[in-house]
Structures are given as C-alpha cells and as structure tokens.
C-alpha cells in the first residue's frame, strides 16, 4: 500500500477523480455564466434552476415517454434553450440599461418560481435516474477503478468547453459575439443584430446549463433544489476566476473541483466551505480575481 502524507494512494486518486468530475460541472456552469454575463450583462442566478430543469426533463422523458439518456442529452437542452429565449425576450429585455443588480434580482425571482413549481409538482425529495447501459460498469485505470459514466462526464465536459472555446475564438459568429461584448453600440452600427445575439447567447448559455443537468442526473439526486445549492458555489468560483474570461472561468471551475476533492481527503469537515475560503483569500490578495481584467 502506497501512502502519501498518511493517506492511501487509492483514496487520494479516487477523490481527485471525483473532484475532476465535480470540477467538470463547475467548469461548464461557470463557462455559461461568463458567456451570458459578457454579452447580456446579467448575472444569471437562474443558472442553477435551468441546470435542475435539464436533469428533471431527462427524468421525465424517461418515466413518461420512455426516451432514454441519449435522447435527453439533445432534447432537454433544446427545450431549456427555447425557454431561455422566451425569458430573455419577455423579461430580461425590459431591464437592460438598468443597474445589473436588477438582473440578479430578476433571475433570483425566476429561481423561486421555477424551483417552487417543480416542488409543487414533484415534491422536494429526490428522484433516481440511472445511467444508460453502455456507460455502466467500471474500468481499471491501473491505480484505481473508475466508473465509466464518470469518465464519460469528464470527456463530455472537455468537449463542451473546447467546442464553446472554438465557437467564440475561431468562428465569425464568435467574432461578432466578442465585438458585441466589447462595443455593443459600435457593433450594432456595423449592421450586426446585437439584440438577436443577446437572445441567442442567453438561450445557448442556459442550454449549456441544462446539458450539465442531463449529465448530472445519473450521479446526483434529481431534486428541485439541486441547482441552487450548486449555483452559490459557482458564484464563488466566478468571483475567484473573474467573469471577464471564458477560458478562465472553465479552468478555475476544474481547479476548484480538484481542490475540493483533495480537501475531502485531508480534512473532510472543510470540504463544503473550502471554495468560499479560497474566495476570501483571493479577495484579500487579488481582488479582481485570478483572470479578472477590470475592477467591477
């Protein structure tokens, strides 16, 4: 048995891998928050609620329509993305130009409505959702046994982050998005439909959250409050990383997942608060955040 600082290697690697899985979720969620904030200038408190809807929709698809995981992974983000587009057009659009605080408060109200709605309809207790057959079981990585599904989540998160990065940094759509982030009025003057870009960005951002929700359904309890617990941690991550940079948000998310996993090994009592403690330290040392550019 190999020990590191008195901790068996197997336990250590196991928690690190779990941390990477959690970090993958943090990364995808803070990525979506950063994209939405960049263009729509709204800190989307409802991000966790849309994450929860993604998980719930996959559960409902399976139990009512017998559509499995592979269907849900496409259908749930589409439904939630469409809902996001409606929300942007009907609600968010009315508060552009006001203090961004109102965006936070508006989306907080949406959290109460969405979570309350699911609680009325399905109760507060969690539902179980099983992973598809193809992804069950575990593989021997040499140093530990890893459930295939968790490997799949890590891979999926990497693909999601990479595709998002390519779309934003390497396509003409991304160039327009970046232009609209920097100088919305000038971009509009060049004949680019910025309001449409904002609508699509919000839709795509919440669809990403829903996709994360579908991925989380088989490994978490599907319950109405699963998103809001997560969103507070993701907010702390966003403060640590700074909302200014999309890749920064993803990297910070992954990193903090791993740190959280390591904390579970060495001092498990602190694992729920370590992210907040790191945020406090970062604020003392570097208030703008690790990847932050401007003081906001």
């Amino acid at each position: 048995m190999i020990d590191i600082f008195g901790v068996p290697l197997v336990a250590l690697t196991g928690q690190i891998m779990l941390g990477i899985v959690n970090g993958a979720f943090y990364a995808v969620l803070s990525l979506g928050l950063a994209i939405i904030f960049g263009i729509v200038k709204v800190v989307n408190f409802a991000h966790g609620a849309f994450f929860m809807m993604g998980a719930f929709i996959s559960f409902l698809l399976l139990s009512h329509l017998n559509i499995g995981f592979w269907g849900a992974i496409f259908i749930a983000p589409l439904i939630v993305g469409a809902l996001g587009i409606v929300v942007e057009r009907v609600l968010l659009r009315r508060i552009y130009g006001l203090d961004p605080i109102y965006g936070l408060l508006l989306t907080f109200g949406m959290v109460l409505v969405i979570e309350g709605g699911f609680r009325v309809a399905y109760g507060s207790s969690g539902q179980i959702y099983t992973a598809p057959d193809a992804l069950r079981g575990a593989v021997n990585l040499g140093f530990m046994f890893m459930p295939i599904y968790r490997l799949f989540v890590i891979g999926a998160a990497v693909v999601i982050c990479a595709v998002t990065w390519i779309v934003i940094e390497r396509t003409s759509l991304g160039a327009r998005l970046r232009a609209a982030t920097e100088r919305p009025q000038l971009t509009q003057a060049f004949g680019i439909n910025v309001p449409l870009l904002m609508t699509l960005t919000y839709g795509a951002g919440v669809a990403l959250a829903a996709l994360a929700g579908v991925l989380a359904a088989p490994i978490q309890n599907v319950s109405p409050s699963m998103g809001s617990e997560l969103v507070v941690i993701v907010f702390a991550i966003v403060v640590i990383g700074g909302l200014g940079s999309v890749s920064g948000a993803a990297i910070t998310g992954l990193m903090l997942g791993v740190i959280e996993g390591l904390t579970k090994v060495f001092y498990s009592e602190a694992s729920t608060i370590i992210v907040f403690l790191i945020m406090a330290v970062v604020l003392m040392v570097r208030p703008a955040g690790l990847f932050g550019r401007e003081e906001g």
Partner: peptide
C-alpha cells in the same frame, strides 16, 4: 471588509458566498 473590495454585482455574489460559509459553520 472582504466584500467591499469589489462592488456592484460582484459584491452581491461575494456576500452570498460568505453567508453560505456561515450557513455551513
């Protein structure tokens, strides 16, 4: 002292995160 190192929307998120820390304590 911690939260006022940032302002606006960040300050709101920081206070939320720190209050969650207090909650867990």
């Amino acid at each position: 002292a911690l939260a006022t190192r940032r302002s606006g929307i960040y300050l709101a998120m920081i206070t939320l995160a720190l209050s969650q820390l207090v909650y867990f304590l």
